[in-house]
């Protein structure tokens, strides 16, 4: 049996009286692209910070590469890379220096550091920016540099905390492209994101957290089948007759007042009937996606 890259058993994180993470258990296998989803304040970043040994765990067990985080944090950190949510690049240094200086923190010798930096500049198409100051970089370039820096010590696990937040679509696609490439090379990755499309297309498996607990776990496709549906119909200006119709037939749905969302199987007859009888204002027929799952599981209310 292959060892898990990450294994958590009932990990808890408390800040005073507030419980940020409340007994979370999951495993990530080698080579897996694993997603961690949840609304703001669900506890995702706390979980991630415990995994790389930044935040001490309040209780539970946490092993990375089969090593206990409490006693082997240094060894663990030397084998993983973290791309943090905030820009933690060194604005005082150039692009190239950012990579080389960071490599030294991992005790990589100077020559090797230079070679690794060169590889990463190439991989992230930053070669002609090597002398640029970090402050002059656009958001997309800065994020690529941060990814390059996270990979500088040839990690076996890459932790990505909202790697595409705040990027324009072009930059986001470029980041995804690089992540796909890394996935192909067999790198294990742990991702948090608010973009459901990103999670759906990148992750092999994911879990959804809310209020510090895991509320669902599985492959994106299975989660969609289980909590939403293959096919979704959004109907504006829903009236009482539609409500009766849906209830009578036992169709899975969300009632948002003016709008109703129906989760159906791709059934032509049913869709036609709904189109004919109920599509007064606007109807949208589309495939079910992870966003449906997310909103159904964590609710539509604003979080603060």
């Amino acid at each position: 049996m292959r060892m898990h890259v990450i294994e958590t058993r009932q990990i808890v994180k408390r800040f005073g009286r507030f419980t940020a993470v409340d007994g979370v258990s999951f495993q990530v296998k080698a080579g897996e692209f694993f997603g961690l989803l949840g609304p703001n304040g669900a506890g995702k970043t706390s979980v991630i910070r415990m995994i790389y040994g930044f935040s001490p765990i309040t209780s539970g067990e946490l092993e990375v590469f089969g090593l206990d985080i409490r006693s082997h944090w240094r060894k663990i950190r030397s084998r993983l890379g973290v791309c943090q949510q905030d820009n933690t690049l060194d604005p005082d240094l150039t692009v190239e220096q950012n990579l080389q200086v960071f490599a030294r923190y991992f005790e990589i010798d100077r020559g090797r550091a230079r070679a690794r930096a060169e590889e990463q500049l190439e991989f992230f198409a930053l070669t002609n920016k090597r002398k640029a100051k970090v402050m002059e970089l656009s958001g997309g370039l800065a994020r690529r540099l941060q990814l390059a820096r996270a990979l500088i010590a040839e990690p076996e696990l890459l932790i990505l905390d909202e790697p595409t937040t705040g990027l324009d679509p072009q930059s986001r696609y470029q980041v995804w492209d690089r992540l796909f490439e890394l996935k192909k090379r067999g790198l294990t990755m742990l991702l948090t994101t608010h973009y459901m499309h990103e999670a759906e297309s990148l992750c092999d498996r994911l879990l959804i957290m809310d209020h510090g607990k895991i509320i669902s776990e599985g492959r994106p496709r299975n989660l969609i089948a289980e909590h939403a549906a293959e096919s979704v119909i959004e109907i504006d200006g829903a009236g009482e007759d539609l409500r009766h119709y849906v209830r009578d037939r036992g169709i899975r749905h969300d009632d948002l007042g003016e709008r109703m969302i129906l989760y159906t199987t791709a059934n032509g007859e049913l869709e036609n009937e709904i189109r004919r009888r109920f599509c007064v204002e606007a109807c949208l027929f589309r495939a079910g996606n992870l966003e449906d799952v997310f909103l159904r599981l964590t609710g539509r209310e604003l979080r603060e």
């Binding site: 930044f54 950190r77 943090q84 905030d86 933690t88 923190y105 991992f106 005790e107």
Partner: peptide
Amino acid sequence: YQKTYDGILATPMS
């Protein structure tokens, strides 16, 4: 402001 420490604390540095 620069979050340099956050970056360093994701490496084997204590």
